[in-house]
Amino acid sequence: MEETLAIFIASTLRLGMPLMLAASGELVSERAGVLNLSLEGMMLTAAFFGALGSWATGNPYLGVGCAVLASLCVAAVQAWLSVDLRANQLVVGIGFNILALGATTLLYRVIFGGLSREEIPGLPKLAVDGLSNLPFAGTAFFQQSVIVYFGLALMVLIWVILNHTSFGLAVRAVGDEPLSADKAGIPVARTRRLAVLVAGAMAGLAGAFISIADIHTFTENMTNGAGYLALAAVIFGGWNIGRTIAACLLFGAATALQFQLPAMGIVVPTAFLLMLPYLLALLAVAGVVGRLEPPTALTLPFRRGK
């Protein structure tokens, strides 16, 4: 029983990780007023270029670098379109998701040929000396890949930046009151562009986690809606970093349960467990779990003098 629980915690952490990475970055962008529906596309792009980089160089760390860089490129265009050209952020996001699915599938077929599932050099699991052998916590917490610990550190960093620095204050200001922020001399457009890039970098890590750290190969559409789940987590978390990460863990747990419950002899329809995150997010946006306050200027482009 204890062993099962430890494995359950470990797989919750593993399945929740890409969500936590992507959602914490997206949170910064949404607090600044830009919603990236393209999160899914950024993650898929990153997963592909991460796998490609790792395969081509033989070095998984360079792969992670490629993933983040590729995702940043998508984010830069997204930022230009939604901040400078004031395009409809949602429509642009959908466009990017279609494009990313098409482009990665196309490139994958052309470069790797057919449907090969060649294994790529993956990130090692970091077995922390002395901790990974602990009877319960060892299995549950300390046999994860490097990216997990790095990602957790980044989340703490995001929390600090968002709540305790002047840049964090600027982010929240341009997301809630862009007009006043502008009058107070905060560069609205630049702050928003930076916030989108933060989302891009974190989505890049999330994509790299999926292909390089977790699955060790690329498959077509391998993110399979994880980006949308991350968006749902931000909503369910009420645009608060702690609650967003808790939401990601909850969604990860729901996914982990579909493997765990049958092993324990409990029959719950898989579809229901998969649906749970979206249902919870839907209840959350309906205000069932308490009043949610999205950033006031979320998805609204800003233009001086208007």
Partner: peptide
């Protein structure tokens, strides 16, 4: 998938 690229 090329048609997806074009659509996107």
């Amino acid at each position: 998938a090329l048609t997806l690229v074009i659509q996107g």
